[in-house]
């Protein structure tokens, strides 16, 4: 088993694998997103309660799910990096941070755009939106800490500790904010989540969620190759890479 991890953990192998995979992942993601958006906007019936504005969930829900998913991936990668000193795990964590922050930002913006017609204001202190906002601060904290420390090695370790501490806090923040929002808001406001949705509405939603996952994978693969190149620039296998040796 360890042999497999070592082979999979070796940088040149992962670099070439990422290079080979990324066009396919990119293609699949493009197809899925276009199909999902098309069905979501055109084919799916309008919601009896919210009319057409519910269609924003095809963008808001995937972004919210991905914002949480990416942070958990970052935390797991950071834990692996701290425990087994696997440099590639840190490359994954560093590569995931910006895209995760973008998903969180999208979840917030589309959430408030969706909320406006329902609640009449751009922002309400609803439980889910508030924990998204705090998640955004966690992402900014991660990136700011990594940028503040010059030595790349100690920056990586510090950021990894922060990611692990952050992920332990996410459920706690989520439940305390949920509890807090029900405390102050009467529960009459319809929950942001999926009201009983007609299956034909659900299908595009799953397509969009999977499309967002693929997009995350696509950007991750590209940024991982960048990270590997930056870390391994001194080695000989990088020097012999065709694209490096050529120009």
């Amino acid at each position: 088993m360890f042999k497999w991890i070592h082979r999979f953990g070796s940088a040149p192998f992962v670099y070439r694998l990422a290079g080979a995979l990324s066009p396919w992942v990119g293609m699949a993601c493009l197809i899925l997103l276009c199909a999902g958006i098309y069905i979501g906007l055109v084919v799916a019936p309008s919601d009896y309660e919210q009319g057409e504005s519910y269609r924003i969930i095809y963008v808001h829900v995937p972004a919210a799910i991905l914002s949480m998913f990416v942070y958990v991936v970052m935390a797991i990668a950071s834990a692996i990096f701290l425990i087994w000193r696997l440099k590639l795990a840190d490359v994954v964590a560093q590569a995931s941070a910006p895209i995760g922050a973008s998903f969180t930002f999208l979840a917030l913006v589309t959430g408030s755009l969706w909320g406006k017609p329902m609640w009449g204001t751009w922002w309400i202190w609803d439980g889910r939106l508030t924990s998204e906002l705090l998640l955004l601060f966690l992402y900014f904290g991660y990136m700011a800490l990594r940028a503040a420390i010059e030595q790349p090695q100690s920056a990586a370790r510090a950021a990894a500790v922060l990611a692990v501490v952050g992920v332990i806090n996410i459920p706690i923040i989520h439940y305390s904010v949920e509890w807090w929002s029900t405390l102050h808001q009467p529960a009459t406001i319809s929950k942001m989540g999926e009201s009983s949705m007609h299956p034909s509405m659900k299908r595009p939603l799953f397509m969009m969620i999977f499309g967002f996952q693929l997009l995350y994978a696509y950007v991750l693969l590209i940024r991982m190759r960048t990270g590997i190149l930056q870390r391994e620039a001194r080695t000989s296998w990088v020097a012999q890479l065709p694209e490096v040796a050529r120009d």
């Binding site: 504005s53 924003i56 999208l106």
Partner: peptide
């Protein structure tokens, strides 16, 4: 509300890529 959110999503994701 619908079109701006679609537009912002498209722009942000494209910018990432």
């Amino acid at each position: 509300y619908v079109w701006p959110s679609m537009a912002i999503t498209f722009v942000v994701l494209l910018a990432n890529v």
